[in-house]
Simulated scan of single mutants.
Amino acid sequence: MSKPAMSTPRPAARRGRRTTVAAAVTAVAAAWVLTGCAYEEDICSSGEYPVMTVGATGSACVLNEEQPPEGYTRYPEGKVPLKVDDKWDIYWNTHTLDKDGKIIDAP
Rank of each mutant, 00 (worst) to 15 (best):
S46D: 15
E48V: 01
V51F: 01
V51L: 04
M52F: 05
T53F: 02
V54M: 06
G55H: 02
T57G: 09
T57A: 02
G58K: 01
G58I: 00
G58Y: 08
A60T: 09
N64G: 03
E65P: 03
E65T: 14
E66R: 14
Q67P: 00
Q67M: 08
P69A: 06
E70Y: 05
G71T: 10
R74I: 04
R74W: 03
P76I: 01
P76Y: 08
P76A: 07
E77M: 05
G78D: 03
G78R: 04
K79H: 11
K79T: 06
V80K: 13
P81Y: 09
P81K: 05
L82D: 04
K83E: 08
V84C: 07
D85I: 10
K87T: 14
K87I: 11
W88R: 06
D89A: 14
I90G: 03
Y91F: 15
W92C: 08
W92N: 02
W92M: 07
W92Q: 00
N93H: 13
T94E: 13
T94Q: 13
T94P: 05
T94Y: 08
T94F: 08
H95W: 11
H95M: 13
H95G: 05
T96G: 03
T96E: 12
L97N: 02
L97F: 08
D100G: 09
K102M: 10
